[in-house]
Design a protein around this nucleic acid. Sequence first.
DNA 1: GCCTGTTATGTAAGCGCTTACATCGCCGTT
DNA 2: AACGGCGATGTAAGCGCTTACATAACAGGC
Lengths: 335, 335
Amino acid sequence: MAAGVTLNDVAKAAGVSIASASRAINGLDNVTEEVRERVLEAAGKLKYVPHGAARALAMSRTNTIGVILPDIYGEFFSEIIRGIDVAARASGLHILVSGSHGDVKEAVKAARAMAGRVDGLLVMAPYADADDLSGKLPFNLPLVMMGGVGGQADLPSLVVDNYSGALEAVRHLREQSCRRIAHIAGPESNLEAQDRLRGYLDGLKEADLSPQVLPGDFTDAAGYAAVQTLLAQEQMPDGLFAANDMMALGATLGLREAGVSIPDDIAIIGFDDIPVTRYASPPISTLRAGVFDIGRRSLELLSVLIERGSAEASTSAASLIVRPELVVRASSRRR
Amino acid sequence: MAAGVTLNDVAKAAGVSIASASRAINGLDNVTEEVRERVLEAAGKLKYVPHGAARALAMSRTNTIGVILPDIYGEFFSEIIRGIDVAARASGLHILVSGSHGDVKEAVKAARAMAGRVDGLLVMAPYADADDLSGKLPFNLPLVMMGGVGGQADLPSLVVDNYSGALEAVRHLREQSCRRIAHIAGPESNLEAQDRLRGYLDGLKEADLSPQVLPGDFTDAAGYAAVQTLLAQEQMPDGLFAANDMMALGATLGLREAGVSIPDDIAIIGFDDIPVTRYASPPISTLRAGVFDIGRRSLELLSVLIERGSAEASTSAASLIVRPELVVRASSRRR
DNA sequence: GCCTGTTATGTAAGCGCTTACATCGCCGTT
DNA sequence: AACGGCGATGTAAGCGCTTACATAACAGGC
């Protein structure tokens, strides 16, 4: 049982004041070696473990940062989290994650729940109505946005240049002499998806090609479904740009099933460069958004903001823009 | 900056005592409607957000559970986390995750850091020397272990029957008339990997086949490397059981590159059933451990333990054993 | 119109910790 | 031998919140 051994218990056991006990345990230098030993021994014997919340309250420092994502699983988010995790342990920080499940309200709720338990917040909220966020989120906590921010919220952020990426994807397909290029879009309310769609449309406009946009929701199932639509129509496209890799993957599956040859009959390219693209057959071309790095750099940025004190944080609203890089693999390489 | 609006500020602004403010905000019923309104309005105006740590300290309840995993990314862990997340939000709990990076000490450190910030712990620590854990971990916090526990620690846990699964894998390969079945093992110090290896060996013994074990570390690179070894030897195996799916995937890649036909030349089977197995070509046979469910059920179990109070928790040390299910896909299906 | 029962409100005592400040020895000076 | 200074230790005041308990206010029953 020995439930809840407190510092006080340790202090008593060691026959010193609670202050000395605290100092000894936290490794401050103003304690006699003898006292430190006694305290540490008592702590060990009693299996004392400091109480995080109490410490946080007293120091108003948690060494924890909150991460709010639309979801916390799947290859994409997993990579982001990995980036964050790597950077976090480098800075000695812990992370409190929460999936907000595609809803601004939920994101705000999650953020509120984190208040007082974290030193800063890393938020990804690619929702069209994210304007609300900027007003409701910053309870004067250092904050870094990952990915698209709605409105003119001038929060520090790391955003991917989705538009350019999409443009590049389309240009690449055109270079592979695709003329009928279809697009599987992301969720309508998703800002990143919107930008990718714009890039796609402009990319076609450049060459006077006519667009075909199929709805999607970033899942492989959506990619698969989109392909069924394509297969049913009279003329198949000869190029396909999916708004993310999962959908490209689903599409690939569907096409392979139908005996369509990739990339000869149809060239495919996705977006994000999640790990699985490499294992698909054929491996899928994509735009590397550096998902891992986004996570890592966001956290680094945040930790700087935290160090310098939240007050002036948002002043320096440094928004880093990540330009995605074209990665050509077999799915779109025509010889 | 309006930094740190406290309940006290709200109370003053609303012209009531801090107690009433607290009650109003927490929706207790013993406040006049009028007071509640005034408080809520003040809170809104001041952008009051309750301080998590303070609340936790006062109530000794955090509504957060800590999750300690060897890693927090990759398909396997991502799935686990998803299971946990789903169950957690169903129970209104938040999760504090931490990767322990393959080391008992780190795991213990992480757990200590979580003390006082969580109501319970979900730990996966498949380390051979995990005996230490049982002694050091339970600072009388409800605790559920996921996966192998070292020693006789009778902690509540959810474990996969790795041995049976491996046995089944080998039997399956034998049924596909494989006679030379190789195994790519997991990390030596990993308990789950050890059990899978045992299952493999026993599975071969049943049929008097001779084993070949290649070292691995659960990464796709290891699978790929193992295959290079196989390709270099005089006679290739005709069956391959990888200790997890990622290695099976890497192996598949390497074999495909070398022009070896799967499953005709060599049948392959993995373990875990992570999502990507379905997308590989050929899709990879595996043993479905129900990764998602492990996460979900662990959390459910934990939350029960929390409800009934930590004290008697470990008494009921209910260990649920999950029997993996054989999933046959193209990589091992011979006609 | 007094007493009791009921309910709304306030007061204050913690929750476990850190830390500014006050004490207290003990040293070397003069 | 008295004194200032310094470093080790203790005391106590919070950190922001909840909640037991005290108080106040108000209703109804006689």
